[in-house]
């Protein structure tokens, strides 16, 4: 048991901690703005989602393997990547017909002006 915990702790602390690019999205009237966001391949990024609505929303994506509730008039952070190039769709589970979007992963550095 001791060996297991030591192994797991080593694995935990061996992760490199470097600056992570931030991308901001808003939820307003049950829609994502922007609904399409471009990020670079092979990098971990931080999505900061601001929910401006009076109701909660749940960011859900099978391809990104993420599920996170963003409370009403609040914000949440979702870490994604490193990802291979491609398009990864996401939905707002409380309003799946309107709250839809995608993360587009490209090889070169993204230049959509949404990077802090």
């Amino acid at each position: 048991m001791f060996r297991l915990f030591i192994s797991l702790l080593l694995a935990f602390f061996s992760s490199s901690l470097w600056a992570i690019s931030e991308y901001h999205l808003e939820i307003k009237d049950h829609l994502f703005f922007p609904s399409r966001i471009t990020i670079p391949a092979g990098q971990k990024v931080k999505l900061i989602i601001h929910n401006l609505d009076e109701t909660p929303e749940e960011f859900e994506s099978f391809s990104l393997n993420r599920e996170k509730v963003i409370f009403a008039q609040s914000q949440a952070v979702i870490f994604i990547g490193p990802l291979k190039p491609g398009e990864y769709e996401f939905v707002g589970e409380y309003n799946p017909n309107s709250a839809r979007g995608s993360v587009v992963v490209i090889l070169e550095k993204a230049g959509d002006g949404n990077v802090d």
Binding site: F12, S15, S16, N65, I78, I80
Partner: peptide
């Protein structure tokens, strides 16, 4: 930990 925040989730 948040999903994807570190090398693994705990």
């Amino acid at each position: 930990t948040e999903q994807g925040q570190y090398w693994a989730d705990w």
